[in-house]
């Protein structure tokens, strides 16, 4: 049978159209025969997410982004995406934009809700989760970091006030204790002066870092602002602690002066070796603590180091 020209042309065109449609769907990552399971997510910030970026669950790509736009109603970023039908996106699932825009490798990670929850219907809204990218990470951890730092300082304060309380007990071996107490105090004062400059240099570093963070990414403005405010709270606390440290040492000096003048029950202190030993070990502990703090301030300011990294 001779195939007519019309038929040949017709068949060719139909084949071409078929290949075109299926080809586009294939590379768009839409299933060839199955209908798609599409969903929407809303973000404050798309962080460079564009149509075609992958959607991943536990690092496995299960779909891609169809469209990214700003919603007219909410003014938020509306991301339309689709996933394989096999993936059951339940209530409680949330989406996170991750990856680094500058490298062009932005993607959307989908964290599935509990398996027994009701599935989100076709076209439904998936919540936005806290970003786990570099800045998101930092912002999320800043309060905890500040808390830890606070703990360290109040611990130090406690130690010092305990020392003060102990010293106000007049029955101790003055002659032997005094020199070491004096030495300790001097050492403490020197240390504080030293650490003051050090702390202010850390502060400067923090300021530099925040400055570069600001210029680095205006997009992360809100979280950086939060970080900075947290940091200044920390600094205020630190300052307060230093003042009380100063108070404590002033009190200590006063006390020692009083003892020096022969007031109180000095004999008792001398005759009570257990008290002496207790105090001695406490002072040795402080000494060790301060020495350690001086030698290795990083250990105590360890959390600050993270900021220093910038």
């Amino acid at each position: 049978m001779k195939i007519s020209n019309e038929l040949k042309v017709g068949i060719t065109i139909v084949v071409a159209i078929t290949i075109f449609i299926f080809g586009v769907r294939y590379f768009e990552d839409l299933p060839l025969f199955q209908t798609t399971y599409s969903l929407t997510a809303e973000f404050d910030n798309a962080a460079g997410l564009i149509a075609g970026n992958l959607v991943r669950v536990h690092g496995v790509s299960v779909g891609s982004v169809n469209a990214v736009g700003i919603s007219d109603e909410t003014g938020k970023v509306e991301v339309q995406f689709h996933v394989d039908r096999k993936i059951i996106v339940t209530e409680g699932s949330y989406a996170v934009v991750s990856g680094i825009d500058a490298l062009g490798a932005v993607r959307m990670d989908l964290f599935l809700g509990p398996r027994d929850a009701a599935p989100i219907p076709e076209g439904g809204l998936v919540g936005a989760g806290e970003g786990n990218d570099l800045f998101g990470d930092l912002t999320a951890r800043a309060p905890a970091m500040v808390q830890k730092f606070d703990d360290v300082l109040s611990g130090l304060d406690q130690v010092l006030s305990e020392t003060g309380t102990m010293l106000s007990e007049p029955n101790s071996d003055l002659r032997s204790s005094l020199a070491s107490v004096r030495g300790s105090v001097a050492q403490l004062e020197r240390l504080l002066t030293e650490e003051r400059t050090r702390i202010s240099s850390i502060l400067r570093n923090v300021e530099d870092a925040t400055g570069s963070i600001k210029t680095l990414s205006a997009e992360n403005g809100p979280s950086v602002t939060k970080l900075i405010s947290d940091l200044s709270v920390t600094m205020a606390t630190l300052d307060k602690e230093l003042i009380s440290l100063g108070d404590a040492s002033r009190g200590l000096t006063e006390l020692l002066n009083k003892i020096n003048e022969g007031q109180g029950t000095l004999g008792k202190l001398v005759n009570d070796p257990s008290m002496y030993h207790k105090m001695d070990s406490t002072l040795t502990g402080i000494n060790a603590l301060l020495a350690d703090f001086k030698a290795n301030p990083g250990k105590y300011l360890g959390e600050m180091k993270l900021v220093d990294l910038f």
Binding site: F20, V24, F27, E28, A51, G52, L54, S64
Partner: peptide, 18 residues
């Protein structure tokens, strides 16, 4: 290869080609 193609595939590209 296909994964890479999909990651940066723009549906407008083939339309533009046409």
């Amino acid at each position: 290869f296909v994964d890479g193609a999909r990651e940066f595939f723009q549906p407008f590209d083939p339309i533009f080609g046409l």
